[in-house]
């Protein structure tokens, strides 16, 4: 049940500078818990007190924003790629 997770520069202080880490979980919430066990501080960086993703964080499952899938309860499958990106604008 390995999930590849891509970490943005701003959160690599939690992953010893690694841009790509691996985690496990059948949902995004489980993955975040697993990641926090391996890389302390990641959960608080991603999820707020209300249990939802922080407003300025976008999480993508195989390029799709999880807010339009199942949010923090989005189901994951072996081999999925989860990407974390800070919210940025254009224009």
């Amino acid at each position: 049940m390995a999930i590849d997770v891509r970490i943005p520069t701003v959160l690599r202080k939690h992953t010893d500078g690694e841009a790509k880490v691996s985690g496990e979980g059948s949902t995004l919430a489980e993955l975040v818990d697993d990641l926090d066990d391996r890389h302390a501080g990641l959960r608080d960086a991603l999820v707020g007190m209300d249990g939802q993703l922080h407003r300025f964080i976008n999480v993508y499952l195989n390029d799709e924003d999880v807010r339009f899938l199942g949010g923090i309860q989005t189901p994951l499958r072996d081999g999925d790629t989860v990407s974390i990106l800070p919210a940025v604008a254009g224009g």
Binding site: T9, V10, L11, F56, I57, P86, A87, V88
Partner: peptide
């Protein structure tokens, strides 16, 4: 994405 912290997101 060279933000110093997540709160600099927009």
């Amino acid at each position: 994405y060279g933000l110093r912290n997540i709160d600099e997101g927009f």
